[in-house]
């Protein structure tokens, strides 16, 4: 098989424990069935080794198991074998031979009634014989082959931009989604979202339904998107918005990328308690939780107080952020707090605090302009090795006579006479 198959990805190392347990149990059952001589069990076990579901991902073993099961007329095994053989590109002779092998495995799977294998055969035909590909797709779709129907709908919506074709394609996606096809839910939800953006309507019940169906069909993003909407409509403490929480949980089960949100919502009450009890580390963690971009908890107003407490409690990393957040606050003493926190950070060795404060003083941004105080802060950052700040000072000297000229370093030494002569000689030559 090729080193990099088009359809075999690396197993996800961060899948949720619940899913891992499910997959491990399934693989154990398949193993038992395979040991008892059931080729369906060996096919399922081969597929598990192909993707690393409940077992370590191991393609040579997958190949052995799938080939035997495919020879014993297990269509899903032929499909898996085709997935393993399908190369990412087919330029070299070797790749073309692989493509051929993949094609015959898919073909055998298709003949054995695996409709997804038929779609793969059609996909290989796409490049050479579009008419045959279309015909095979129509036939496969009529038999209930979801992937082929989906692809036909895709083609319909791309080849023909008329409103009628678009509506027709979306009707197919909606039907497929209602019958549990995740990708059709994704396609249809995307279209409904675009329609909605055009109408500037609130989230339509139809979009919610499609998102909910796609979420149940295993899509992480659709769960997440719906969860964000439900969360925003909810009231009360985040950890008590049960409907949204259930959706965030589901998003995490489907795709591990979304798990941090669930963790954050569940961690929040304890951190609030800890911060109120004076644990600076908890205040910092709480502030970070409110700062996480894209999180439903993201709120500069909520992050402000805990970040400030963290800085005052000795978490120096918190000071720059606390100061920046304070400057967004309209309270009359906000600037004074920001200044205090910048100074704490800067004195504690956070170069970022000195630089941010220095720039604000020099530019009169957030504080009254005070180059006499600001420039020394920037100059000492430059002197302690921040070459980007030296460059910044150099730029500032062009327009601001008060800016200190940074001390020359050895970045651009003038050429010695011999080197100059040598260069001239080469140019002449």
């Amino acid at each position: 098989f090729p080193t990099s198959s088009a359809l075999v990805e690396r197993a996800d190392p961060d899948e949720s424990p619940a899913r891992r347990e499910r997959e491990e149990a399934a693989a154990r059952a398949d193993r038992t069935a395979c040991d008892e001589g059931k080729s369906s069990g060996c096919a399922a076990l081969g597929l598990a080794y192909l993707t690393g579901a409940g077992v370590p991902q191991n393609r040579p073993l997958a190949e052995v198991l799938l080939r035997e099961a495919c020879d014993a007329d297990e269509g899903t095994a032929c499909m898996g074998l085709g997935q393993l053989y399908l190369p990412r590109v087919a330029f070299s002779e070797e790749d073309k031979a692989m493509l051929e092998q993949a094609g015959s495995a898919f073909d055998r799977g298709c003949r054995l009634g695996v409709l997804d294998a038929c779609e793969r055969v059609a996909a290989i035909l796409d490049g050479t014989d579009e008419v045959a590909a279309d015909a095979l797709r129509r036939d496969t779709c009529a038999k209930g082959g979801t992937a082929s129907c989906r692809r036909l709908a895709d083609d319909l919506s791309m080849r023909d931009e008329s409103a009628a074709a678009q509506t027709e394609a979306q009707r197919v996606f909606a039907r497929l989604c209602r019958s549990g096809d995740r990708e059709s839910c994704v396609s249809h939800a995307r279209w409904l979202t675009q329609q909605q953006e055009r109408d500037e309507d609130s989230r339509s019940p139809e979009l919610r339904e499609i998102q909910s169906l796609g979420c149940r069909a295993g899509d992480g993003y659709l769960c997440h998107d719906l969860a964000m909407a439900v969360f925003a409509e909810g009231s009360g403490p985040p950890e008590q918005r049960v409907e949204a929480l259930a959706l965030f949980d589901r998003a995490c089960d489907n795709e591990s990328d979304f798990c941090s949100i669930r963790t954050a919502i569940h961690a929040r009450p304890l951190l609030v308690q800890g911060c109120e009890a004076g644990r600076a580390q908890d205040c910092y963690a709480l502030g970070e939780l409110y700062q996480a971009p894209g999180s439903p908890l993201e709120s500069a107003a909520d992050a402000r107080a805990p970040m400030g407490k963290a800085c005052e409690g000795g978490i120096i990393e918190a000071c720059t952020i606390a100061a920046e957040l304070a400057l967004q606050d309209s309270a009359p003493d906000a600037a004074a707090r920001a200044e205090r926190w910048y100074r704490t950070g800067c004195a504690g060795g956070q170069a970022g605090s000195c630089i941010a404060f220095g720039r604000r003083l020099v530019d009169g941004d957030g504080f009254p302009r005070d180059p006499g105080q600001g420039y020394p802060l920037l100059a000492s950052a430059c002197a302690s090795g921040r070459t980007d700040i030296c460059d910044e000072l150099e730029t500032r000297t062009a327009t601001d006579p008060e800016a200190p000229v940074p001390v020359a370093d050895n970045s651009y030494l003038p050429d010695d006479p011999e080197a100059l002569e040598e260069r001239q000689r080469r140019i002449n030559e």
């Binding site: 080193t3 690396r10 197993a11 077992v55 991902q57 191991n58 040579p60 073993l61 052995v64």
Partner: peptide
């Protein structure tokens, strides 16, 4: 890259996937 080695029916199967 991830490497795995699995023994199945007396044969060792090794794989590295990147």
């Amino acid at each position: 890259c991830t490497s795995t080695a699995v023994t199945f029916r007396g044969t060792l199967y090794e794989d590295t996937i990147c």
